[in-house]
Structures are given as structure tokens and as C-alpha cells.
Design a protein around this nucleic acid. Structure first.
Lengths: 250, 250
DNA sequence: CGGCTTTTTGAACCCCATCAATATCCGTGG
DNA sequence: CCACGGATATTGATGGGGTTCAAAAAGCCG
């Protein structure tokens, strides 16, 4: 389960990729930094960490060690109640930040687990704090990314609080589609990195209900879903679902 | 929260209260600042803003003017969809920060509306950015408050995604009770500042369902609810509800 | 006292959870 | 290579929590 990484897998050139040459930099913390600042940031980052599927980047309750930026792969973050119930609060992709749930008291309130073999860049908290103080642009981008996180959670609240199951799934798929597009992938066909179980939990549904919704959307020609593989056929229909056109629950 | 302040209560000396003498400072941005820093922060703050019930502090889409700290009263913040559906994302009380939903792109993604006559302290964004750069402790407290906001939204996600109606209400009441206690009010009896309609929306329920849940909890002797007035009679039962003891939806 | 909003209560229906069973995929070992 | 077992996913049947429609009751304010 845990990512006891085979040392031989890490070739030197993998470890030395810099922020400067990283294709994700425009989505990530380095965005907007000049050459000199970039170099400073680069110097602070530990880049060697690899996580296999199921490996935890951090667990709820642990003290915060670092801020993480995803380089490849994907993660889920979830809350846990004392009695064992879980709620997935987000799926995270390359260029996104992980660990800001520890902002309040330097301890994590979520657990982050890799959905597939993934790599992250780690930024020790002390270093980061110092860097922010000296680089206004880094600080700004950090705030920007936190803001995105908050906005995303607001969208999810809207979804869970107001929408039916099919509307939630439509919203999720459109959001995912956009995030993949922003990363240079196809926005109409992709493979989900999470099992149905996780997606259902994220959407506040039972696995069976989610499966039924997929089947129905497929029957209606909105998409084609073969297990993890999704092909969106009718974006307009999906969008109209996501905006649940005629419902005034106000 | 209930302290529906008579307008005449606001004499000039109220408007000039400084952070230093503010009873909420330990919950608010000034927490941990030394005398000199406190004076600097004080100098930046506009304190005269008062909002009647229904008045908007800011609206979704507007550019961010300032960061707000609530001094008295209470607010609700909500998301709006293109088709008019709303989801209340939070209720906010004295000492809490409003406006951080604009962190991503300097534009608000929520609307904030006063639930009763309320006053806020406004901190213009540019000033604040500058202050943060020169006062590490202020920066730290700002991060702390943002973290609290994120944590609160995670709790709400858990609530909406995993709990039944009665469990959601129990969770809300316990949370509210704690926040009131932290502000020196009774934690067992209080007046809700929001109508059923808003609370139902926040909890992802229909007004009728919420009303029925209140009635049932009252029949069971867990609490006494007379319109806005709530008296919690059995904290243990409420807590056991909030933790939905025997349900493994894992 | 009227007219308004807010809250509660009642009845019917529906989305979704649950229980149960089948199907499909995948990794492992014979 | 194929067989086997476990995890993952789909499908069916049933029941319950919650929404919706409808209306009455209770505050609130002019």
C-alpha cells in the first residue's frame, strides 16, 4: 500500500526538473515570478517524493510539514468523523496545492491519498512563510490558489445542497473536463482516476445511484461511460443539466 | 446575536472603539499583535459602516474593496446560480472575517447580507496587503482565520454529503452553541438570527422538513424551539445525533 | 384590527438509500 | 495461458427520508 519507492526508479533528470521548466508553472505557485524569484523558490523545493495508489500524503491530525504541489497523478482529500464516516472534499490534479487545510492550526484536518502513482513537490512551511514575506507575487499567487480552493468548495456546497444526483454528476464532469483541458488533455474523453465508490461519496450519493445515473445518461446519449473511461457526447445537454434549468427552490 | 441593537445605541464613541479595546480582538485579526502593531492596524480600519437587515455588504461579481470583520450582528453569505438557485455557505458572527471569497481573483463569488442590524470594520485590501507584509503575526492570524473558514466549509460538506436532516441540524446547533459561548453568550439558550427559510437552505433541506425536525426534537425533549428562540435541553442526545452513532456508509 | 410574513402541520409522491444478486475487470498463482 | 478470487461496477426490487403541494396557525407591523 504505502509508497516504499524503489530508489532505482528515480533517475537524476527526474529529480532536477525545475519550476522554470515545469509545464504546470502557470497553474502553480511559480506563476508570475521573475527569474530570480523562481530560482529562490526552486531552491526550497523537495521534489523527490512519489506516492503509490492508496499512499497518504498526510493524515488528519498530523502536524503540517509542508505545502504540496502536485506534479503528476491525482489525489483525493477527505474528512473523517469519529465514527468512521468519510466525506471526500476534493479531487486534485497537477498544479494544484495540497495541505492548506492545515492553515488554521498547523495541523491537518483532512487526509490526502493518492488515487494513482503520483509525484508532488514539497515546500517546507517555514521556508514558505519566509519566501512569501519577501516575494509579494508568490504571496499573491498563494492567495489566488487558496481562493480557488474556497470557491471550489462553495461550488460543491451548492451542488450538495441544491442539486439532484444527475445535476451533481453533470456539474462534476463539466468541471473535470475544464480542468483537464487546462492541463492539455482532451476535455471530451478521459479516464477517471477515482473509483465509483469515491466519486459517489464526493457527490453525496450511494454507489448504486451513481451507477444508475451514468447508465441513464448513456441511454439518453449524453455520454458514454465504460467504467473509468468517459466520453462526453453532448455538452449542451450536460450543461443544461448542471444548471438545472427549471427549478425554483428559492 | 439576538441583541437587536436599538439604533440609538450607536453613539459616536461606539464608532471610535479601537481594536485595542474591542472585546473580540482575541477572535479577530488583532490577535497576537503588540501595541505598536495594533495601532498601525487600527489606523487603517474604517469603522463607521452599519448595515440593516437585508443590506448587502458585497455582492457576487463585485470587485473586492476591503476585508471585513464583523463587530456586531450577523451575516449570511450565499452562492447564486445563473438560474437563481441559492445556497447559503455560512452564517457569520462578531469577530469573524468576511470577504475572503474574493481571494482568487479580487472579485466576490458570494453575496453577504446582514441578518439583523450589524456593524463591521472594513480594511481596504491594498492597506491590508501592505500590513501583512510588515507584520508576520497579522499575516499568521489572517491565515488562521482563512483556515478556520476552510475547515468550517469542510464540516458543512460532511454534513450535506453524509448526514440525515436531524443530524445536520444537531451539528449546526452544537456548532452555533460553541460559537456563542466563545463570544460570552449562553450556549444553551439563544435566539437564531436567521429565519427558518435560511437555515433550511443552509442545511440543504426544505423549510417544511426543517420545521418537522424541530418539532420532533422538541417532542423528544432534546430542545425547546419557539420560533427563533432555542433552548437546548439535552446536549448528550444532540451530540449523539450529530455523530450519527451507528451508520457505516463507508 | 387587517394584511403580511413566518412557521407549522398534513397528505401524496419521488428521488435515492438499502438490500440483494449478477456481471465485469484485474491481479495472482497454478 | 488459463483458472480462481477479490475488488469494482451494474442492475433489480423495496422502502424511507425528504420534497412538494396545500392550508392552517401564529407572530409582526402599520
Amino acid at each position: 500500500m504505502s509508497g516504499a519507492p524503489d530508489p532505482t526508479v528515480f533517475k537524476l533528470h527526474d529529480l532536477k526538473v525545475s519550476c522554470k521548466s515545469c509545464s504546470l508553472s502557470r497553474l502553480c505557485l511559480p506563476h508570475g515570478l521573475n527569474e530570480k524569484e523562481l530560482a529562490m523558490l526552486d531552491g526550497m523545493i523537495e521534489r523527490k517524493t512519489k506516492y503509490d495508489r492508496g499512499a497518504a500524503l498526510y493524515r488528519s491530525g498530523e502536524p503540517m510539514r509542508a505545502l504540496f504541489a502536485i506534479r503528476s497523478g491525482s489525489f483525493k482529500t477527505f474528512m473523517t468523523t469519529p465514527d468512521g464516516a468519510e466525506q471526500i472534499t476534493g479531487f486534485h490534479f497537477p498544479g494544484e496545492l495540497l495541505g492548506i487545510d492545515a492553515l488554521a492550526d498547523e495541523h491537518h484536518h483532512c487526509t490526502a491519498v493518492a488515487l494513482e502513482t503520483s509525484t508532488v513537490c514539497a515546500l517546507p512551511t517555514q521556508d514558505f512563510e519566509h519566501l512569501c514575506a519577501t516575494m509579494p507575487q508568490l504571496h499573491r499567487q498563494f492567495r489566488h490558489l487558496i481562493g480557488q480552493e474556497i470557491n471550489h468548495e462553495h461550488e460543491l456546497l451548492l451542488s450538495l445542497g441544491q442539486m439532484r444526483g444527475d445535476e451533481r454528476l453533470a456539474t462534476f464532469l463539466l468541471n473535470l473536463s475544464e480542468r483537464l483541458r487546462a492541463r492539455g488533455f482532451s476535455h471530451s474523453e478521459f479516464n477517471l482516476s477515482m473509483p465509483r465508490h469515491d466519486l459517489a461519496n464526493y457527490l453525496g450519493l450511494a454507489v448504486e445511484t451513481l451507477s444508475r445515473i451514468f447508465s441513464r445518461l448513456q441511454d439518453e446519449g449524453v455520454l458514454k461511460a465504460n467504467r473509468r473511461n468517459i466520453r462526453i457526447l453532448d455538452f449542451d445537454r450536460l450543461r443544461s443539466l448542471a444548471h438545472h434549468p427549471a427549478r425554483a427552490r428559492a
